[in-house]
Simulated assay, not measured.
Amino acid sequence: MNFDIIRTGRAILHVTDLDKSRAFYEALGFIETASDDKNLFLRGIEEHNHHSLLLKKAETPVVEVISYKVRSEEDLDRLAAFFEKQGTKVKWMEKGSQEAVGRALRIQDVSGLPVEFYAEMEPAERLLQKYHLHKGAKVQRIDHFNCMVPDVEKAYNYYINELGFSCSEYTAGEEEKIWAAWLHRKPSVHDVAYMNGFGPRLHHVGFWLKDPMNLIDGCDVLASMGYGNAIERGPGRHGLSNAMFLYLRDPDGHRVELYNGDYLTSDPDFKPVRWDLDDPMRQTFWGHEAPDSWFEEASEVLDVHSNEKVKGSEPTLKKRKPTFVT
């Protein structure tokens, strides 16, 4: 494997009302880097790149792409050659075709998800010590994607064996079939998770907070501004990953997770943690169950070549509530 994927980079979501979206994400503490009448570029307090979340005005809320940062331009060329050798069609986004991002390539991955790889993004001021600008949940940085796919083992095998991801934790059921998996490139629990369900769809984008109290701050600010019904689940602690969590729905229904407190996975002798599908603590360490919406609802995705919605399919494993994924 001769390419280096660094980490989760950015998400591009289509929204129907930029003003409503701006008010919601600013309440959480996101920083606006730039905007116009069709685009809103947001980043976290500690991020030194132009954005990690791009909201585009559209008639229908949908996911345009989820993106990973690679180390160099050469890595993009190597990835393109790798995909083309496999028969995967590559779409190049030339430098200048996207604001703030250099040359990038997009594919429809093995699960049908729209995935982008890029090496270059314009810098932005890191606001880590500009404490007077910190507000809401004080969102620090993008952390991971969670994707609902019909065949988790297919995604698991491809991203580990072909793209060099590693597994931190997974959930297995009968005959050791994998129902959910947490995969990473950076040395934390995950850059992407896959959960069993109707898909491909994006379940949520996770953003890192500096401490658990910021979850509470986020809830208080949202409630005081009339966004209480945006809180879907939590605050709580995951069994899987051991992290604190809060799940929210933005004005278009896109789900975001505020996340804090997982652990280091960089040691070469780290062994993936196995959870049994019937272990009640896998869902939430404290025991409270997720609402049905958490298992059933997710954001539809676009085809990177046709810009049409990708048609979903039912999961290959027998229907039951998917395992809890962070």
Rank of each mutant, 00 (worst) to 15 (best):
D36Q: 04
E175W: 13
S306G: 07
F3Y: 10
N196H: 10
Y170P: 00
A11M: 07
L13N: 09
Y25L: 02
L105F: 02
K177E: 12
E26L: 14
S188L: 02
P235I: 15
K38A: 13
R233F: 15
I231K: 09
Y158D: 10
N229A: 13
S241T: 15
L258P: 02
S21D: 04
W182T: 03
V90T: 06
L105S: 01
L277M: 11
N242K: 13
K69P: 00
G253F: 05
E94W: 01
L76T: 01
K318N: 05
E74Q: 12
D17T: 08
P315H: 08
L105C: 02
K135M: 09
P291T: 03
E300W: 08
L127K: 07
L13T: 03
T33M: 08
E59C: 02
R274Q: 14
S293N: 11
L79K: 01
P322G: 05
D217L: 12
E296L: 11
A180L: 11
E314C: 01
G29N: 10
T16K: 13
Y25E: 03
L54C: 04
K309N: 07
K321H: 11
I216G: 09
I142A: 10
R141D: 12
K177Q: 09
G234M: 06
R274D: 15
G199W: 08
L183R: 06
G112D: 05
P251T: 04
H50E: 05
C219P: 01
E64D: 14
E162Y: 04
N196T: 08
E99R: 10
K271M: 13
F24R: 05
D252I: 04
K210A: 14
R255M: 14
R7L: 07
F24D: 08
E162C: 02
Q86K: 12
R22D: 12
E84C: 01
K91E: 06
P123L: 09
T316V: 15
F30G: 03
L277G: 01
R201I: 05
N157D: 12
F295T: 04
Y158C: 01
A23T: 12
E153P: 00
S97V: 02
K95T: 00
S168V: 03
N260P: 00
Y263R: 13
L222A: 03
H51S: 08
W275T: 04
E59N: 15
F117S: 01
D37N: 14
E73N: 11
N307W: 09
G102A: 08
I66S: 08
D77E: 14
F30P: 00
R274H: 15
R185V: 09
V221H: 08
K311N: 13
R43G: 05
V90D: 02
A119N: 12
K311C: 10
D36Y: 06
E257H: 04
D292M: 08
M148W: 08
Q283Y: 14
E153K: 07
L246P: 04
L42F: 10
I6A: 10
